[in-house]
């Protein structure tokens, strides 16, 4: 039931952010909607530790600036290849992921795809591997050197010690 409470609070926060009209009627409807949505989501089984990775959600702001900087850098790299397509040297590489939870692994894979130049093609949950398609050798090396892996592991740190 704890997940329902947390989800209700988050959903009500989203309602408050979207609404912009704070009359008692709309606030009551918002609270009811948040509760109803959370109960239905619980019924759908989407409110487990994968669907509501609280630790990762709350620690995401720590890496925001870093990921924006990475995205801008790799954007310039890809634009250079687009100007001269002969520079493209596509590779498929396997990246080892040090995450322990599915949500952490997904965050890692999405960060890899979010930086242009690398796309995660396949995510293997059992072997903790991500097969990555990189546009050039440099992009592949940047993904494989483990700095992104360390950042994402930092995000899910307390979840591991807690369980």
């Amino acid at each position: 039931m704890r997940s329902v409470y947390v989800s209700t609070i988050l959903m009500f926060g989203l309602w408050l952010a979207l609404s912009g009209h704070y009359t008692p009627l709309l606030l009551a409807l918002g609270a009811l909607s948040a509760l109803g949505v959370s109960l239905l989501a619980k019924r759908m089984n989407v409110l487990d530790e994968e669907g509501l990775p609280i630790g990762i959600l709350f620690r995401l702001p720590r890496v925001t600036l870093w990921i924006i900087w990475e995205i801008l850098k790799s954007n310039l790299g890809v634009i250079r290849v687009i100007i001269a397509p002969s520079k493209a040297a596509p590779q498929l590489v396997t990246v080892l992921a040090g995450q322990h939870t599915a949500a952490g692994l997904v965050t890692h894979a999405n960060f890899i795809t979010l930086t242009p130049g690398t796309v995660s093609v396949q995510v293997d949950e059992d072997r903790n591997e991500i097969i990555v398609h990189g546009l050039t050798q440099e992009f592949c090396n940047a993904t494989k050197d483990g700095s992104m892996d360390a950042k994402v592991s930092l995000l899910e740190k307390r979840t591991v010690s807690g369980t």
Binding site: I71, L72, V78, I82, L114, P116, H133
Partner: peptide, 11 residues
Amino acid sequence: RMHGAGIIDTG
């Protein structure tokens, strides 16, 4: 081409 589409989506 996915990398090209990535520029539209991010940058």
